[in-house]
């Protein structure tokens, strides 16, 4: 998985590309680090260019949610498509994380 990030007045956005899977826990650290920027109130994780997510990848989104909550940051997962959307729906994580289509 690769990602790019950008900062706006009210928050930070990370756009994920490729596959988010069990071999990517090292990369998660880099995304969590984005939450440590000063004054962040909102973080968007954009999945529209993500092609594949496995159960470990969904677990990483839940970890991001917890890390964001601890810092009073609102986390939004945006734009999952195709197979990624199917996995998110099957695991019912929209009950815990805000998913914007």
């Amino acid at each position: 998985m690769d990602f790019e990030s950008s900062t706006s007045s009210d928050g930070i956005e990370a756009r994920l590309r490729g596959r988010l899977e069990f071999t990517d826990h090292d990369r998660l650290r880099d995304i969590v680090r984005l939450l440590e920027s000063d004054g962040i109130k909102r973080m968007v994780i954009d999945l529209k260019d993500l092609e594949f997510i496995d159960s470990a990848g969904l677990g990483m989104l839940l970890i991001m949610q917890e890390e964001a909550e601890q810092r009073n940051v609102k986390l939004i997962v945006r734009g999952p498509r195709n197979d990624v959307k199917r996995s998110i729906d099957l695991a019912r994580i929209s009950e815990i994380i805000t998913i914007e289509t």
Partner: peptide, 13 residues
């Protein structure tokens, strides 16, 4: 293993 469970989701799939 839906919801916040950190494991078991693979078997759900």
């Amino acid at each position: 293993a839906g919801g916040t469970a950190r494991s078991g989701r693979g078997f759900i799939f």
